[in-house]
């Protein structure tokens, strides 16, 4: 406990760096997955390749990816951009399936009704398909948020700032409290983000509130 009290500024610093790395990755994953998931849902031919690609992507271990990426995108090995891009790729790999599944689950009646009412395709997608697929996408996004916050720490072995630096520093200097602080904070951050998404989901999709309460 003393270690925590003595190092509050350091901990705040690491937490901030952690959020600054993981939040953009989660957002980017969502933004990229929606059109990609739509393609997989809309065009059957793309369904297999997109989902297989996503599965293979997810099988690639994070640290090697952090090291291979710089060669492909022209960054330095210790650049935080590598971590953001890698985490985005993992997020997309998970979310694309949720988006495709969610859109697959939209009742054809609802879609047909929108078409009959004269909704143009984009408006139908944004106001009918996407909201109805929302709960499935949200559950995927929650998994992405939690695993992104957790994976973000791996960059620490390359010296990239995050709560993970508490692990490497604690290990090198033999400070158990530092490692424990890092683990607790990472888990708390992940679970807090998960709760936040649940709340945002209820605000954005009020009709799911009744089901969630049941």
């Amino acid at each position: 406990m003393n270690w925590v009290l003595d190092n509050l500024p350091l901990i705040a610093d690491r937490t901030w760096a952690h959020l600054a790395t993981s939040l953009p990755a989660i957002l980017a994953a969502l933004v990229i997955s929606v059109p990609l998931g739509w393609l997989a849902h809309r065009y059957r031919i793309l369904n297999g390749p997109v989902l297989t690609g996503a599965g293979l992507m997810y099988a690639i271990p994070s640290l090697p990816l952090f090291i291979v990426l710089p060669v492909l995108i022209g960054t330095g090995v210790r650049d935080v951009v590598n971590v953001v891009v890698a985490l985005t790729l993992y997020g997309v790999a998970l979310l694309v399936r949720s988006v495709a599944d969610g859109l697959d689950g939209v009742p054809p009646e609802a879609r047909g009704a929108a078409v009959a009412l004269g909704y143009p395709p984009l408006r139908r997608f944004l106001t009918v398909d996407l909201p109805l697929a929302g709960p499935v996408i949200l559950s995927g996004l929650r998994v992405v948020a939690v695993s992104t916050v957790s994976l973000c720490t791996v960059g620490a072995v390359l010296g990239i700032p995050s709560l993970g630096l508490l692990f490497t520093d604690g290990f090198q200097r033999g400070i158990l409290a530092e490692i424990l602080t890092g683990i607790v904070l990472t888990v708390v951050l992940a679970l807090a983000l998960d709760r936040l998404l649940v709340v945002l989901g209820r605000l954005a999709m009020p009709w799911t509130r009744a089901e969630a309460g049941a």
Binding site: V143, V146, S147, V149, S150, L151, T153, V154, A156, V157, L163, G164, F167, T168, G170, F171, G174, L176, I179, L180, G182, I183, T186, V187, A190, L191, D194
Partner: peptide, 17 residues
């Protein structure tokens, strides 16, 4: 909850212990 567990944290913790 285990999904939130950082692998590097667990690894350094068990290594130290």
């Amino acid at each position: 909850a285990a999904r939130a567990l950082p692998t590097l944290g667990v690894l350094t913790l068990t290594a130290l212990l």
